[in-house]
Simulated scan of single mutants.
Amino acid sequence: MSMATHGEPAKAAPSRRPARTESTRQKLFDASMRLIGERGPGNVTVDEIAAAAGVSKGTVYYNFGSKSDLIAQLLEHGVELLEERMRTEDGDPLQALELTVAAALDFFADYPSFAQLLVSEMWRTPSEWRGTLTLLRERLVSIVADAVRRVAADQPVDPDVPVEGVVGAVFGATFILGLDRQVFHPERTRSEAVAAVMTIMRGYLRQN
């Protein structure tokens, strides 16, 4: 996993640091998301994250160097997990897009603190992790873009609406609805949220 500090793009970790195992990263991710959800990133220390994860704080400092580095890499780890869920197998393009949206909403339901941190920092200027989040956002947008373009290639769409705009609308709606559902409207079902996002895509299709 790469590293980023002070809003700079992610860089390769120094070779002197041993590779971290997936299990250790997952422990740190789960612990940090739990603590950040309770108090926010500014009020959580590396020592607390290490203790909650059951990992030596010396190991955390050695591998990450600082809390900024730790949060940057945990953001990347979370996005990697989200990417895995959002990638759907080939099939009916419209159904595949719906599954991609549903997978993102499910992930946010599983990791609400990550959803809040990702969305708040992604659209906040300036952000300490701006450079890292820009790269991570591009990775997530590309998954949505591929799914939307498959639909556009499979069915007639409105030629007056740029596909890039539809991609942005679907991406933004998925993330904001996912966060809104966790924070303000937990009574809204997954199906309702998916249907709301897919309304954007269905409006893009031309009616025969």
Rank of each mutant, 00 (worst) to 15 (best):
Asp154Ser: 15
Ile71Glu: 04
Ser191Ile: 11
Leu81His: 10
Ile176Trp: 02
Pro9Glu: 11
Leu118Tyr: 15
Ile71Met: 08
Tyr204Pro: 03
Met1Ile: 06
Ser68Ile: 12
Ser142Ile: 00
Ala195Gly: 01
Ser191Phe: 10
Ala96Tyr: 04
Glu98Lys: 08
Gly203Ser: 12
Pro186Asn: 04
Met122Phe: 12
Ala51Glu: 11
Ser127Phe: 07
Tyr204Leu: 03
Arg188Val: 15
Tyr62Asp: 12
Asp180Arg: 11
Gln182Glu: 13
Thr45Asn: 07
Met122Gln: 09
Gly7Gln: 04
Thr125Gln: 11
His6Thr: 11
Thr88Gly: 01
Arg149Val: 12
Val163Pro: 07
Asp180Cys: 01
Leu177Gln: 05
Asp180Ala: 13
Ala193Thr: 12
Asp106Val: 08
Gln207Val: 14
Met86Gly: 00
Ile143Asn: 02
Glu89Tyr: 04
Val101Thr: 04
Met86Phe: 02
Phe171Asn: 00
Gly78Ser: 05
Pro41Cys: 13
Arg17Pro: 00
Tyr204Asp: 01
Lys67His: 07
Val148Trp: 09
Val166Met: 03
Val148Gln: 11
Arg34Asp: 14
Ala195Asn: 05
Ala103Val: 02
Ala169Met: 10
Val101Arg: 02
Ala147Phe: 03
Pro18His: 06
Ala19Leu: 10
Gly37Gln: 05
Arg17Ile: 15
Asp90Glu: 14
His6Asp: 14
Thr5Val: 15
Gln95Arg: 13
Leu133Cys: 05
Thr125Lys: 10
Ser142Pro: 08
Ser32Ile: 01
Met198Gln: 04
Asp69Ser: 15
Thr100His: 07
Asn63Val: 02
Leu177Asp: 07
Phe107Thr: 03
Leu135Pro: 00
Pro126Asp: 00
Glu22Lys: 11
Leu35Glu: 09
Gln182Val: 10
Thr125Met: 10
Leu70Arg: 01
Met198Ser: 05
Leu35Arg: 10
Gln26Asn: 14
Glu8Ala: 13
Gln155Ile: 12
Ala31Asp: 06
Asp90Thr: 11
Ala52Cys: 10
Asp146His: 11
Phe171Tyr: 13
Tyr111His: 15
Ile71Gln: 04
Ser120Glu: 12
Ala153Arg: 15
Val197Leu: 06
Asp160Trp: 05
Met122Tyr: 11
Gly165Lys: 05
Trp123Gly: 10
Asn208His: 12
Val183Tyr: 03
Tyr62Trp: 13
Arg130Tyr: 07
Ala193Val: 11
Phe108Arg: 06
Ala53His: 09
Arg130His: 13
Arg181Glu: 01
Gly54Ser: 09
Ile36Arg: 08
Ala147Glu: 10
Gln95Ile: 13
Arg206Lys: 15
Phe107Ala: 07
Thr189Glu: 06
Glu80Trp: 02
Leu205Lys: 08
Ala19Tyr: 05
Leu140Trp: 04
